[in-house]
Write a protein that binds this DNA or RNA. Structure first.
Lengths: 154, 154
DNA sequence: CACGATTACATTGTGCACAATCTAATCGCC
DNA sequence: GGCGATTAGATTGTGCACAATGTAATCGTG
């Protein structure tokens, strides 16, 4: 199991796959995304598209930059993604009149209506994760700490 | 088994981005991968390529199927990835003589040598995550629980 | 041994992620 | 008003992820 390896604060860092929190994180993230897939397929969405709609449902009309800030995604990801939402008739893109650099993304009626059908999604996912309320809270706390630390250490 | 959950035992599932553990997980995973990038760039690797090398360093000569089982990745991801490792001179691909269906992946000398330089990577990442030993253990436990539950609920 | 089923892998196509580079609109400052 | 710097966004290219489909080798059973 744990031999002589890099250590700090009594923690050991090996090159063994199963020892790595990073891999556990990466695997968990992909497993959850896969669990989302059949649910989101029914809505005609991918997981990142669903995330963009969460932002739009919450805030209404939003510049792409703010969507990127909320989701930590860049234009290279968002520009084509939002164009696909537009092609699907769920979102609209329009330049802000008083600043033509900014593209405001807003919901069509169809995109707004999807919110009702999406209500069941987080419930189903929360259920599938099968964590106790305490573990759920702990996971949120640790992941936020980790994300903040990792971002700050760059 | 823990039974049904939903909003039922005191947890609430909203459509608000910040409430969602799934998003925290997704964001944390990408943040960690980004933190890996500069470290792995020095080795000429991407994160998934690094994961494949972890498996090879640990087990030596491995069929693609087993690499996929260890990393939970399919052939569509692994076939081109391993071909890039081969093109970089780090890995070799050869058919198993007694079963020509199987492709055994093994390390070149150069791929083996990279292990020494990679030792510093998990240490740096563990350091950047900045979790206490207790939180680190808790995170591993919760993520494994979550991954197992989510996979089983499909 | 024949032959359908299975297995291991490859290929194709779509959609993220993200770095690097580019364009056009706006702002700051004189 | 003129002009360099900044800002918002688009584009291009590489590399995952993963579904769907295809192919060749092997196995199982009669």
């Amino acid at each position: 199991m744990s031999g002589s390896r890099g250590a700090r604060d009594g923690q050991e860092y090996s090159l063994l796959l199963d020892d790595q929190l990073c891999f556990a994180l990466y695997a968990a993230s992909r497993a959850v995304t896969q669990r989302y897939r059949p649910l989101l397929d029914d809505l005609g969405l991918t997981y990142p598209q669903y995330l963009v709609l969460l932002v739009l449902w919450e805030y209404g009309s939003v510049p792409i930059k703010e969507i990127g800030a909320a989701l930590q995604l860049d234009y290279g990801t968002l520009t084509p993604l939002i164009k696909r939402l537009e092609a699907a008739g769920l979102a609209r893109r329009e330049r802000r009149p008083d600043d033509e650099r900014t593209v405001l993304v807003s919901l069509t009626d169809e995109g707004g209506d999807l919110r009702v059908r999406a209500r069941a999604v987080p419930v189903a996912i929360g259920d599938a994760m099968g964590l106790s309320p305490e573990d759920h809270r702990e996971a949120m706390r640790i992941l936020r700490t980790l994300t903040a630390q990792v971002a700050a250490s760059g």
